[in-house]
């Protein structure tokens, strides 16, 4: 399963590296989101500094919808996923491979997005360890739930509408916990013992397990 996961992740990242969809489309989209948030809210530095963690994670959440949709569409277009199953690739491996590939893309996107937040909103950043750990587990949670739901919604003509409706309520704890963890990190009030980080770890573990268990049923169903 692990070997299959690495193969799938490498394949997807290679496709991504060649097509550059994340770089050319999703990253600019995330920046647009950061800019329009400032339009919607008061542009005074105090307000934007205060809400910066929430806006950052909202931008990541919106971007993740496109990323997971694309990761699954690679296999559903032309029934490539059926081919993988016929070759005997482990469905759990496909799931984990997709999660790893989307994780790498989202994590890189988060680095760029953080730069954007620092430049546009100007928050005081501290508590790097908590920030890094919460970003790591929040992204795993987003990817695991996202890939599972994207596969569930595949085959629908209204997939682009259905996926956010299914996914956003499910990952709302990630948005909430990651925002709070980053607020704590920025204020340097707590470190790795932060309860929000624990919630993010629980979410990531639960959704990785659920995805690995159910992915074969979704694919074969």
């Amino acid at each position: 399963m692990w070997r299959d996961a690495l193969l799938i992740a490498a394949k997807d990242l290679r496709i991504e590296f060649r097509s550059k969809v994340t770089l050319n489309l999703i990253l600019p989209f995330a920046f647009v989101v950061l800019i329009i948030f400032a339009f919607a809210l008061d542009t005074s530095p105090g307000t934007l500094q205060k809400v910066a963690p929430g806006l950052f994670w909202l931008a990541v959440l919106f971007s993740s919808i496109f990323s997971v949709d694309r990761a699954v569409a690679i296999e559903t277009d032309d029934n490539a996923g059926d081919g993988l199953l016929v070759y005997g690739v482990d469905p759990g491996g496909i799931f984990l491979g997709k999660v790893v590939s989307v994780f790498v893309q989202l994590f890189l996107l988060e680095i760029f997005l953080l730069l954007g937040v620092v430049i546009l909103y100007g928050p005081k950043i501290g508590g790097w360890l908590l920030m890094l750990a919460s970003a790591f587990f929040a992204t795993i949670g987003l990817c695991a739930a996202g890939v599972t739901y994207s596969q569930l919604a595949s085959g629908s003509r209204a997939k682009q509408t259905l996926l956010p409706l299914l996914l956003v309520p499910v990952v709302s704890p990630v948005l909430l916990a990651a925002t709070k963890a980053w607020q704590d990190a920025f204020a340097v009030t707590s470190s790795l013992g932060d309860p929000w980080l624990r919630l993010l770890i629980v979410f990531a573990v639960v959704y990785l397990a659920l995805g690995a268990i159910f992915y074969s049923s979704i694919l074969e169903g």
Binding site: L152, G155, L165
Partner: peptide, 14 residues
């Protein structure tokens, strides 16, 4: 909203 999503998923042709 979670279960509205569940009901929407059921409407997907399959």
């Amino acid at each position: 909203v979670l279960y509205l999503g569940y009901l929407a998923l059921r409407r997907v042709p399959a």
